[in-house]
Design a protein around this nucleic acid. Structure first.
Lengths: 146, 146
DNA sequence: TATGGACCCTGTAGCAACTACAGAGTCAAG
DNA sequence: CTTGACTCTGTAGTTGCTACAGGGTCCATA
């Protein structure tokens, strides 16, 4: 059951993460060090499960580990205003929005490259051409500094 | 046909890259080792400029270094069919499309979290709630939150 | 009791694609 | 001759893991 102590493998299964990742989170101080058994195995309780699930969910939503750290801290201060939480989420949303915009612009360029490719020889390939720098002949010849 | 020789700094300026990156590309075999001056400075010609520009443009379009390497190889085989080029570009387009889809889904989730936040106390914060795991109430209650 | 296999431990190195030094040498202007 | 901008090599850091190597532990079965 969930109330019992768990091994790291069990915790990994429950949170859909992998064992190395959990140890990594512990090493960087994102998860508290758990108790150890007589055989030096890590022993996790429900609080660890809760915390790791929070981390996983946040990661799935694309928050960086630093943002997750901040969110975890804030989640513990139950009586504070959640403005700071809101700020982190909004910051992240802005990042996501800008990535989407970048990717859409990229997609347009890629797509136009691809649709122009008649798939003849490389010499006439519109994709290679689109990637190649276009120096005017004059410049190529005469340019150069120093 | 050879313009003037350039220093690494000059090449960096012309290609809008930075000096360390150029040395890095050389180290991993993406750019050919240039000639050296008497003082052991790297000395680049127009062909390097052309090649590095191609790399930068490809990178700007989101191709991985491995993809860039493949594109460079293909670009050199002028008489081959450009099917392979097309394949790389299409593969990349598919990656971009799937990233866009992921980010849009993410955006929806983030946005719905944020719009629900009334910015009261952390205890009532919908964002924290949305990030928190939903185990059966018994557990949450029994353990409480610190 | 021995043994096999699944699990766990620590520590280190690797991935992408750079970036950031440290500590040294080079070069041209004033 | 000095100053300051530039360059050199080599190494280590970044993010967020993942993958060993070389051991130890646990437990069911023969």
């Amino acid at each position: 059951m969930t109330g019992q102590a768990m091994s790291i493998g069990e915790l990994a299964r429950q949170t859909n993460s992998n064992v190395e990742t959990i140890r990594y989170y512990e090493r960087i101080g994102l998860l508290a060090k758990p108790a150890r058994t007589a055989g030096n195995y890590r022993s996790y309780g429900p609080e660890h499960l809760r915390r790791l699930s929070f981390v996983r969910r946040s990661r799935d939503l694309g928050f960086s580990l630093d943002q997750v750290r901040a969110l975890l801290d804030l989640a513990d201060q139950r009586d504070r205003s959640c403005e700071a939480v809101d700020a982190i989420a909004k910051e992240h949303l802005a990042e996501v929005d800008s990535k989407i915009a970048d990717l859409l612009a990229l997609r347009r360029e890629l797509n136009s490259m691809i649709t122009q490719c008649g798939c003849g020889s490389v010499a006439d390939c519109r994709i290679i051409e689109a990637l190649s720098p276009r120096f005017s002949p004059a410049i190529t010849e005469e340019r150069g500094i120093r």
